[in-house]
Amino acid sequence: MTDTILRIWSRIETVLIGLLVLCALFTFMGGAAVRVLTPQHAVDWADEVALYFIVWASVIAGSTLAAEGRHINTEIIVGGLSDRKRRAAAVFTFALTLVFCAVMAWLGWEAFEFSRMLDDRSASSLRTPQAWFLFLALPTGMGLMVLKMILLAFAGRGITTSPEPAETADFTKKAE
């Protein structure tokens, strides 16, 4: 059950991430095309808007990375320990990550509210409110990661399972 939820959830996120990156690409290159072809209609916000898409895609990807065990860590030292100690370290770092992400989600929310109160805007002629377009990304991404980690805990999985060589081999294969 938990695994099914995780799988569907990751699928949705993957589509969303792909969509956000493609939007970034079209906005950015569209801005470039206008500048080259009809410079008198050039806009001063293409980079800015493309970046918002990328920032949102990045933070949402954080949660899928967690589900796929792809957040980078090092096991140089823990790898040499006994199974029991290694397990204890894994539980500790998982709990720490959960707490950290929850704290960041909270602080990110405070940052969002502060920026909204300050009404601080971007420097382009769009004058984009930074609270909604930029700062809201962090609590959203961290919040998603927290929810996902709770599900992962139910499924008995961590977020940094370092891959075995066999598993890495399919990286060289083509997409499914």
């Binding site: 993957t14 589509v15 991430i17 792909g18 969509l19 956000l20 990156v21 493609l22 895609a57 990045s58 933070v59 990807a61 954080g62 899928t64 990375l65 796929e68 792809r70 957040h71 980078i72 083509k174 997409a175």
Partner: peptide, 23 residues
């Protein structure tokens, strides 16, 4: 070797690899 239907998932895959570093 790839079709239009792969564009989404491959783009997302690229972003994920980048995002591990972004974090």
């Amino acid at each position: 070797e790839v079709g239009w239907k792969d564009v989404f998932s491959m783009t997302a895959e690229a972003m994920k690899a980048a995002s591990a570093v972004t974090f």
